[in-house]
């Protein structure tokens, strides 16, 4: 028996919108720790890892570990039927091949339940060890989204370089080149608007902008984004989900042949 009641149902709606273009089908894993997902895109160069901790739910019952295979497009269709202020409850019985999403309006005058078919998905879980990164950049998520969108109108790839001068996002295409430098900026009143650069070593990596733009669909989940870079590792783009967990995107860098 599984029953998860999320008062801020809009969080789940936003989570789905941020992953459904990257991954078609995924297993949602439910355990005492929380509600989680790890899935790779079809080409295996990008990965999304989601954790919504059990403490973030108003009610969290998960009698045994359960993995529920869902088509994310179908799940998104169902969650779009929930109002932004609705409380969402996810329910499933042991051994059932369906999951139920229950939507309650804040005033309790409307209650809806949507039952969705589950599917069997063969998924490969990757073990991702903790790593030391050469540079970690924290910046406003909207600023990062703007940069990725702007650069993708010029080129297909972005070079992200961190030096003591700041973080530079560069692209090149048929019509020309573009460079955007963001310097550390902690003097603003609002911490979520600051840009903080922790650099152990300078680092420069190249990524496909198509994926970066897809990751920025998570922008409504967090005011800040953290970009962790190391020369031998995939980049990690993390959006913290307030008091609940995180959504992290991993992307393999482009390397010389």
């Amino acid at each position: 028996m599984l029953e998860l009641r999320l008062v801020q149902g809009s969080l789940l709606k936003k989570v789905l919108e941020s992953v459904k273009d990257l991954v078609t089908d995924a297993n949602f894993d439910c355990s005492a720790t929380g509600f989680s997902l790890q899935a790779m895109d079809s080409s295996h160069v990008a990965l999304v890892a989601l954790l919504l901790r059990s403490e973030g739910f108003e009610h969290y019952r998960c009698d045994r570990n359960l993995s529920m295979g869902m088509n994310l497009n179908n799940m998104s269709k169902m969650l779009k039927c929930a109002g932004n202020d609705d409380i969402i409850t996810i329910k499933a019985d042991d051994g059932s091949d369906t999951v139920t999403f229950m939507f309650e309006s804040p005033t309790q005058d409307k209650i809806a339940d949507f039952e969705m078919k589950l599917m069997d998905i063969d998924s490969e879980h990757l073990g991702i060890p903790e790593a030391e990164y050469h540079a970690i950049v924290r910046m406003p998520s909207a600023e990062f989204a703007r940069i990725c969108k702007d650069l993708s109108s010029i080129g297909d790839t972005v070079v992200i370089s961190v030096t003591k001068e700041g973080v530079k996002f560069s692209t090149r295409g048929d019509i020309g080149t573009a460079n955007i430098v963001c310097r550390q900026n902690t003097s603003v009143d609002k911490p979520e608007e600051s840009t903080i650069i922790e650099m152990n070593e300078p680092v420069s990596l190249t990524f496909a902008l198509r994926y970066m733009n897809s990751f920025t669909k998570a922008t409504p989940l967090a005011n800040s984004v953290t970009i962790s870079l190391s020369s031998e590792l995939p980049v990690v783009v993390e959006y913290k989900i307030a008091e609940m967990g995180y959504i992290r995107f991993y992307l393999a860098p482009k390397i010389e042949d």
Binding site: M40, H125, L126, G127, I128, P234, A252
Partner: peptide, 14 residues
Amino acid sequence: CKVQSLISYYYKWG
């Protein structure tokens, strides 16, 4: 340029 699969960076389990 080429991109290596994430499987070459991390290890599979489960």
